[in-house]
Amino acid sequence: MMRRNDFRARGHPSYWTFVVHRVSGIALAIFLPLHFLALSLALQGAGALDRFLKFTDLPLVKVSEWLLVTLLGLHLMGGIRLLLIEFGPWRGLRKGWIAAGGALGIVAGLAYALALIGPTP
């Protein structure tokens, strides 16, 4: 019989970054085929695509879209951090990147949210 770790062993930034990276990756992987299917509506003409875009005006959909863009930004920044760790010169666990990357990911989401809800120029 072996004992396993619980949340107390995982209470440090590099681990949280791993969780965010994996969960965001799973969410994006599920979203991607749906995204392709939606775009493929253009095969049935612009009208079909427009009807779908009307559906995306629903508040729940807008929130989901914002969440996905944020997750994309976070996955991107976490991924760049990993590429730096694995391919770049060793500069520790790049904890600065965890902070900055997290911030930039959230900023990307906020920029998208502004675009969604703001007035069209």
Binding site: A108, Y112, G118
Partner: peptide
């Protein structure tokens, strides 16, 4: 990301895309 933020800002219709 840059594209979709720009495109969403300027109105997302089939015609625009």
């Amino acid at each position: 990301l840059a594209t979709l933020i720009y495109a969403t800002r300027h109105g997302l219709t089939a015609a625009a895309i």
